[in-house]
């Protein structure tokens, strides 16, 4: 009886270990990719954006309309292109 229970326990543990063995490299790889590539890329981008954002008009200037004008330009451009050149055959 005890031998059977121990056998079942061993089977279950070995199954769990097999799953872990299968998953662990994927987790470690993704962690490695994040640490080696994504994180430095993020820090690099953040530094660039930090330098650029300091030139943006902030809330103290009350220049919210500047952003609306930029948004409006992109929207107008989108509407123009969508109606004037709806097909991809024209290379634009």
């Amino acid at each position: 009886m005890i031998t059977m229970i121990l056998q079942t326990l061993q089977d279950t543990i070995s199954k769990i270990l097999a799953v872990i063995e299968y998953i662990l490299p994927t987790i470690l790889w993704s962690m490695g990719v994040i640490l080696a590539f994504v994180l430095p890329l993020g820090i690099f981008l953040k530094n660039i954006l930090g330098a650029l954002v300091s030139h943006f008009p902030g809330p103290e200037t009350g220049l919210l309309w500047v952003y609306f004008i930029v948004a409006g330009i992109f929207l107008a451009l989108g509407i123009f292109l969508a109606t004037k050149y709806p097909e991809r055959k024209i290379q634009l």
């Binding site: 930029v70 948004a71 409006g72 992109f74 929207l75 292109l81 969508a82 991809r88």
Partner: peptide, 17 residues
């Protein structure tokens, strides 16, 4: 507002253009 207008412009463009 800028990202919303850009989303419009991107989504209204034909596929693979």
């Amino acid at each position: 507002s800028i990202t919303a207008s850009l989303s419009f412009t991107k989504a209204s463009s034909p596929k693979y253009s």
